[in-house]
Design a protein around this nucleic acid. Structure first.
Lengths: 226, 226
DNA sequence: ACCTGAACACCGTTCAAGT
DNA sequence: ACCTGAACACCGTTCAAGT
């Protein structure tokens, strides 16, 4: 068939194909040509749906962030409820990113400014306001949480890449094996070596880190600083 | 000239060319072919120096991290000194990343496991140990700082990409202009809209975030948690 | 409006060959 | 050991053309 049977796909169908590619072959495989291939389209046909690759990725990010549950828990606006709400949002965001291999690449390649990104921000801002923070502090606290979640997932992804299967359990790896690449000068790092494998469970250290961050963000006495 | 005048470059010279490319044309331009071009080499010649592109990027990351000053300040091992040391390391790491446009891409594309990355970790671990944290907590605190710095720089870079020139001052951008891409459903986000441009100075919010994180990591009374 | 086919200017990497 | 040249299997994007 030459020109085409006018199939008229929906954006949802295209994103579905893109996510299938992301989950089966990783972020690198999410290409305009690749998605077109899955859909049985010519690469150029993709440009009638998205003006460029960035817009496609932004669409994926939006759909991903839409999966984060931001329904207001029916609890009151007490500081205690506010804190657990922040934790839930942070954990929820982390979950949808960790569940999908390659999703981090997506987030890092795309500005987070769609409606669902802003909705998430809004919930965090509201929670920090409920916790008693003034608007400037709430804005910065929201940013700090955003930054922490994304950074943590990015780190986990980078580690996962070099030792697939997961270091969740005790996995010291090929212990004395020559390090992966060029540097064999092998200084010793007593503290690092000793602590290797201590707090290494990704989920555990993330939960711990978020709690400590909130300890600092919601500290009751902001007077004694310095 | 056909085969070649046996020029025998050093790794340092190759990395210099790679950084020149990074700083003038951004991370995307750092390609095996691109670097080879700057050096007057054929792309294939690059493979006698680095086994693949990843190793080249890892070499760049190592050199970048080598620029972070980790010289032990002559101060005593008091908790107060420990805290300021962590802040200095975090700020130092952020500086070398922020100064070089495109450096974030580098960090995110490469596992941080070279000697200089470990040296930085070691300094953070030592500081947290000086501050009185047990090995597990010190390891997790180190990870939290790592994550926070990288996440913050990645965020700033993403923002810089869509409004170059910097939102350092009050820069509301094209205020009511239709949002960059597809979504025009335009829910309203009262808190987000009100706080837009409040705590948005990258350096300021980073410094604030690191201090709050340390408030939580170095909290004196880990009893009253929950 | 949606699609094809050809084309342009790129990638990373491998392989056989030269010195 | 270091390098070239040709090649393979990819990219994102544009353009002219068909229905």
């Amino acid at each position: 068939m030459r020109p085409g049977p006018r199939r008229s796909l929906t954006h949802a169908e295209i994103l579905e194909a893109a996510f299938a590619l992301l989950e089966t072959k990783g972020f690198e495989a999410v290409s305009v040509r690749g998605v077109a291939g899955v859909l049985g389209l010519t690469p150029t046909a993709m440009y009638t749906y998205y003006p460029n690759k960035g817009a496609l990725l932004a669409g994926m990010v939006e759909q991903l962030l839409g999966r984060v549950d931001t329904s207001e828990a029916d609890g009151a606006a007490t500081p205690e409820h506010a804190r657990t709400r922040v934790v839930e949002l942070a954990q929820g965001l982390r979950s949808i990113l960790v569940e999908r291999p390659g999703a981090v690449g997506l987030l890092l390649a795309t500005p987070l400014d769609g409606p669902n990104a802003r909705r998430l921000d809004e919930r965090l801002l509201a929670a920090f306001a409920d916790a008693g923070l003034d608007p400037v502090a709430a804005s910065r606290a929201t940013h700090a949480v955003r930054v922490h979640v994304l950074g943590a997932v990015a780190f986990d992804a980078a580690e996962e890449e070099r030792s697939p299967g997961g270091p969740t359990a005790a996995d010291p790896g090929p212990a004395p094996a020559a390090s992966a690449t060029l540097w064999d000068d092998a200084e010793t790092f007593p503290l690092g070596d000793r602590s290797r494998g201590l707090g290494d469970d990704p989920a555990g250290r993330f939960a711990w880190g978020i709690e400590r961050l909130l300890d600092g963000l919601l500290a009751p006495a902001p007077i004694a600083r310095g």
